[in-house]
Nucleic acid binder design. Structure first.
Lengths: 351, 351
DNA sequence: TTGTATGCGTTATCAG
DNA sequence: CTGATAACGCATACAA
């Protein structure tokens, strides 16, 4: 029994700088104190005399000790890792959000476990199972498909932060971007440029985002006294092809329009391509506005006018809220208001 | 002592379906066997009588038992999680690769821990430290900046799979995409279209990829008997702005060229925008070819000709290789050969 | 303020 | 083939 321990100690001392299994017991021994005391200075769990603290810190530094999160998790019930359910690992939007999460979590000593739900409620549920089995300290769900009910249920087991939804429940914090206002802004922008026949390409029907943006579109029209025309609303699914097909449909059915507002940038880009294919120029013949303001949108041809979605900020805020939840303080994060970024794809209606 | 255990059992039976802390001991008790035996059927560590196996499986199902990876990690020395060092969480390329990794790992019962090195060797080293402290079973480095030496060192501590490099060492497996051939293909494509004055926008100088692609460019020129002209090679940094500036530079210095080959799609898109700004049409006036074949590239205006980088496949292969390394079998993954995807941004030189 | 004892949920090592 | 029992590395009541 002690044999094993001794052999490890020897191995360590021989390599000296290897980040091998230096245990808390080893620093305790070197510092001449008990393991408990070392643990205490490590976590600030209790007051330790300055003198011993000094000695322990030295021992830690000397041995290059780094606590084992695994053991920590087992013993303390916390893993210092938080699970993040995204919808797609490969997406400019979720990518930025993940970056925000990471930037916020790492400095706090937490790690993120990213998994993706592929826009599917069942898959998301599986993700959460995996995360729970990994004993994450909390879960962040980025714009999921799970029902409010399910979410509330999960929140009972561990802190939960959810974006893209507004919900009230214990242990649950939601962070919602104002999609309605975003939709309104974009439409209003086009109206102010003189457009009155504005087509709208919707997002995925099952998604709240999409209907909210549509709501903003309708509100802006109404405010300007423009009649809503259902024929100008084309269903899309948030990807480029949708935009392209929407334009085809619009043209095939002889709809008259001078501008297109797409519920996200990907569809806007697809629409622009569709227009170009039919020899319609953007923005000379048709103005196009997107939503999300993806990093690539400023290099689209022409650079795309869009509603900025603060994906990175959203990620940071969500993570920060989670940290606060974990610290038992009430989260105070607030999502930035939507902002319209005007570029070359939209311009004043001529004639 | 048994008190505690009993209380847990009660809690469990009362909630019945809760995924609370059902322990191996509890299923052992229900099945009327020892914990060791349960562990054995769980891991297939030893032969167990079919009859007991049955009983245990039933107990597991009945209690909804799910092994605790944390405890597993502590006891068995394995965490069933593998660390993945990417360079950017928000990048179409790494995004696809991450998806590939996830798709391969999850079914095998492993989890991925994604962290990003931001193209910085020091940051990458920190990432690896974090990963090691999390006791991951292995590390996958996607196209890093670490030195071969450092990599070999890490490979001593745990299995390592590295992409974007060719290296031989114990416990280390590398997976290299043929960037040279990709560069050659793209250039050859333009040459076959009749172009002879082909500008090249390089990638980030510190990156092997970039120089290999340049090598392919030169080789193709040479094979066609076209003299290499240093003035047509513009340094870039792999982002859109580089492409735009490169075109500005080319035009400002009065270089004559009929085609541009950019070392990645982002720069190609930037170049296309730069050309458009100067009223040069793609492909009528200038053909443009990119590298990577990002998903968005097929919707660029015009759709971009590009060399396909099998990012998703690369991720899968890397993960699969890691799994093989972990299973002590020699990895056999082979990266698909580069393929040119011809679209509308390149066409035969007129006149 | 500090040390001791014990438990976290599994796997691994031994006996049998 | 199976069951005790000892680690795994740390945190935490409890006692001192």
């Amino acid at each position: 029994m002690t044999t094993k321990k001794r052999s490890r100690t020897e191995k360590q001392s021989s390599k000296e700088r290897g980040n091998g299994p230096v245990t808390i017991g080893m620093v305790a021994q070197v510092a001449g104190v008990s393991a408990s005391t070392v643990s205490r200075v490590l976590n600030g769990t209790a007051v330790v005399s300055d003198i011993k603290k000094q000695v322990i810190d030295n021992a830690i530094a000397k041995l290059g000790f780094v606590p084992n999160p695994i053991a920590r998790g087992l013993a303390g019930g916390r893993t210092f890792s938080i699970g993040v359910v995204t919808q797609a690992l490969d997406s400019p939007f979720y990518g930025a959000a993940m970056r925000g999460v990471e930037d916020e979590l790492l400095p706090a000593g937490y790690n993120a476990l990213f998994v993706s739900g592929h826009w599917d409620a069942a898959a998301e549920a599986r993700c959460i199972d995996v995360l729970q089995s990994r004993r994450v300290d909390g879960i962040v769900v980025l714009t999921g498909r799970l029902t409010d009910q399910a979410l509330k249920g999960y929140a009972k087991n561990q802190p939960l932060v959810v974006t893209g939804r507004t919900l009230k429940a214990p242990g649950l914090f939601t962070l919602n971007f104002d999609n309605f206002e975003g939709g309104r802004l974009a439409t209003q922008h086009l109206i102010q440029l003189g457009h009155r026949r504005i087509a709208f390409i919707t997002g995925d029907a099952g998604h709240p985002d999409a209907t909210e943006r549509l709501g903003g579109y309708r509100a802006a029209l109404k405010a300007a006294g423009i009649a809503f025309d259902q024929a100008l609303v084309i269903p899309g699914e948030y990807h480029e092809l949708s935009g392209l097909l929407a334009v085809d449909h619009l043209l095939a059915t002889n709809r008259r329009f001078t501008a297109i507002f797409a519920a996200n940038d990907q569809m806007a880009v697809g629409a622009a391509l569709g227009l170009q294919r039919r020899s319609l120029r953007v923005p000379e013949d048709v103005s196009v506005v997107g939503f999300d303001d993806l990093p690539t949108s400023q290099y689209a041809i022409p650079p795309l006018t869009s509603v900025q979605q603060p994906a990175y900020e959203l990620g940071r805020l969500a993570a920060s809220a989670m940290l606060q939840l974990l610290a038992d303080t009430k989260p105070t994060a607030e999502v930035p208001a939507p902002r319209l970024i005007a570029r070359e794809s939209s311009r004043r209606l001529q004639g």
